[in-house]
């Protein structure tokens, strides 16, 4: 069998493929967070493995998901305000997959993922609209000036990199002074017209996220919807290597998408993100 034919055959089962990729992502994620609360986590894993050997295949199928949910809940219980936002999304996705092993209705699982991803993106839109720092452009203005965004791209523009370094150093010096003296520093902009660019970029982000969320709600299987969704994911990755979160969004896309070529792109993004997490270039 030719390799592409084999891949095409595999692409016909997005839920099975998605499960495998999610398990791979979870394995990496759980290992990275493994040091925290390791005693409780070790107990859960031992208990899970023991029960997996003891029980029949019906329970065996559910056991990995139950153990993963328990591990994710441990982090959530002890570090509710410290875990990343995608930790919550990861938990909800795993819960949906565990429920799938009970009800066996793929259509319900797909609905779960569709509404979940819409909630996540719409929440992001609401947060941006309700943040004055975001709307007036000061968030992007600061983030660009200190190299918190597009840092990898600044490497090709040495002048911008110098400005970024200079701004960061000035902030560090400011923080060593007594804030009651009300001192301030001047942020040197990395580009011309940064003030206008920051405001436009803020509104562009909101509009794109809103369109993607609406498209996923209205036409979750449409090729156009997934082209927009993939473009948004790649744009976020270019802005900042939020690989953990983008891997989860791509997984949602893989579950929802009907086009085999777009499924293949989602798989490439997910694998790329996982590799970047393993090599610690991306964020987990």
């Amino acid at each position: 069998m030719k390799p592409w034919s084999y891949i095409q055959l595999k692409l016909r089962e997005p839920i099975f493929l998605g499960k495998q990729l999610l398990l791979l992502l979870l394995l990496v994620y759980i290992i990275i967070l493994g040091e925290d609360y390791f005693f409780i986590k070790t107990t859960i894993i031992c208990l899970g493995l023991t029960l997996w050997f003891v029980f029949n295949s019906k329970i065996r199928e559910k056991m990995p998901w139950i153990v993963i949910i328990a591990l994710l809940l441990v982090d959530l219980y002890y570090s509710y305000f410290w875990v990343a936002n995608h930790h919550f999304m990861l938990l909800f996705m795993v819960l949906s997959l565990m429920l799938l092993t009970f009800h066996k209705q793929e259509s319900i699982f797909i609905k779960n993922i569709q509404f979940l991803v819409v909630v996540v993106i719409m929440a992001s839109v609401i947060q941006k609209l309700s943040s004055s720092q975001f709307i007036n452009g000061s968030f992007y203005y600061h983030a660009l000036d200190v190299g918190a965004l597009f840092k990898k791209i600044f490497i090709f523009f040495p002048d911008s990199l110098d400005i970024v370094q200079n701004n960061s150093d000035n902030i560090n010096v400011l923080y060593k002074s007594d804030p009651n003296l009300r001192e301030y520093i001047v942020l040197k902009p990395v580009f011309n017209n940064l003030k206008l660019i920051s405001v436009l970029f803020a509104w562009l982000t909101i509009i794109i996220e809103f369109i993607v969320a609406a498209a996923l709600l209205w036409k979750p299987k449409s090729t156009v919807t997934h082209l927009l969704f993939i473009a948004m994911i790649i744009a976020v990755l270019v802005t900042r290597l939020e690989t953990g979160f983008m891997a989860l969004l791509s997984l949602s896309g893989l579950f929802l998408c009907a086009n085999k070529y777009l499924r293949f792109i989602y798989i490439l993004i997910i694998l790329g993100c996982i590799i970047l997490i393993i090599t610690k270039i991306g964020y987990h």
Binding site: Y80, N85, Q127, S138, F139, A143, R240
Partner: peptide, 13 residues
């Protein structure tokens, strides 16, 4: 906004 499961990262400093 960065924490607590509200998906508000990158919306404020």
């Amino acid at each position: 906004r960065w924490k607590g499961g509200g998906y508000g990262m990158y919306t404020e400093m």
